[in-house]
């Protein structure tokens, strides 16, 4: 029962907001917007929390993978502009699929390079990790300026994903519905891998005690690299989705969203994928409700949420038992 308590916070927050918002259609719109935002944050944050849990690495450069993913996708989408603007789902997909693949591949490749060159020498030293990954983030941002120029790149959504669907009186943006579906799919896939496969078992064991996993004969270094690359790839996917949501791409978008990502993984319990999911949804919902109810508080709503949750559970919603 206690285990499901944090999960119950999500519907509880949504229901508590209903009387405050007043109008049901507005509430539906806000809730879907919050869930969509939460799902996108989850996709971007999930890799970071796993990397921290498994390797004890605080990777500030994760934001760089988000930006690079977005830029890679933008390049593909701009090249395939005609397919994007065609009012046919098949044509749109023929542009989106290669764009997403490019984003995941380039972000994953960058992640692999980072693990090998930047992070490997500083395993076990948090201060150095923060310094070199922060530095890495700045270098990648500047390299993006060199490769793609300093200007904001507008990124219109594909034709079939613009506009809204009416659900009763509530207007729900198509793109947000897609974000919810993709987020759920990523969560389900991660959950399946982590709970149903031997690889997942190894990752969960490694998050708790890497030394013991090695002592059982597993070469955890390979697992580190695999998880790091997968986490970076997910950041790339999240980057594309976030960019389409914002309808523009900037070099600093990764760094900007990192603040929210850190809040989410701290709320969730460092290293916990389930906690990251619940934390992301809470952050998304609360940001949307507060943004509507008390816009002046919107800027601090995430921090307030983090403070409240940490007062209740100082190690996050689902603390990971490190030993």
């Amino acid at each position: 029962m206690k285990r499901h308590l944090p999960l119950a916070l999500v519907p509880a927050a949504a229901l508590a907001a209903l009387p405050l918002v007043g109008s049901t259609p507005t509430w539906v719109t806000l809730t879907v917007a919050g869930l969509a935002m939460g799902m996108m944050i989850f996709i971007m944050a999930s890799g970071l929390t796993l990397v921290f849990g498994l390797m004890d690495v605080m990777n500030f450069a994760h934001g760089a993978f988000i930006s690079v993913g977005a830029y890679a996708a933008a390049s593909v989408l701009i090249a395939l502009r005609a397919d994007m603007q065609a009012p046919s789902l098949a044509a749109n997909l023929s542009a989106i699929v290669p764009a997403v693949a490019a984003a995941i591949a380039l972000a994953g490749l960058l992640g692999w390079f980072f693990e090998r060159v930047v992070i490997r020498p500083v395993y076990g030293d948090h201060l150095k990790q923060i310094l070199v990954t922060m530095g890495g983030l700045i270098v990648v941002e500047q390299l993006i300026h060199v490769a793609w120029g300093p200007d904001i790149i507008p990124l219109p959504r594909p034709a079939t994903l613009t506009g809204s669907v009416l659900l009763g009186d509530a207007a729900i943006e198509r793109y947000r519905m897609l974000a919810v579906v993709v987020g759920l799919a990523v969560f389900a896939a991660m959950w399946l891998v982590l709970s149903r496969t031997r690889l997942g078992l190894l990752i969960r064991a490694g998050v708790e005690n890497t030394e013991m996993v090695e002592s059982l004969g597993y070469r955890i270094r390979r697992l580190f690299v695999g998880v790091f690359v997968a986490g970076s790839g997910l950041a790339g996917l999240g980057g594309v989705m976030w960019a389409m949501y914002q309808e523009s791409v900037t070099a600093s978008m990764g760094m900007q969203v990192m603040v929210v990502i850190f809040i989410v993984i701290i709320i969730g319990g460092l290293g916990s994928v389930g906690g990251c999911f619940v934390g992301a949804l809470l952050v998304g919902l609360v940001a949307n409700y507060i943004g509507y109810l008390a816009p002046k508080l919107a800027l601090g709503s995430n921090i307030l949420l983090m403070v409240l949750i940490l007062l209740w559970r100082p190690r996050g919603l689902y603390p990971v038992g490190k030993s």
């Binding site: 998050v207 090695e214 002592s215 059982l216 004969g217 955890i220 038992g321 030993s323």
Partner: peptide, 27 residues
Amino acid sequence: ATPDLARLGIAYVPENMGIFAGLTVKE
């Protein structure tokens, strides 16, 4: 390296037992 030592047939039970608390006994 440690994993290779384990593969040679050396098993280690550390002082803190090193069990994976979040996993079941079976796992």
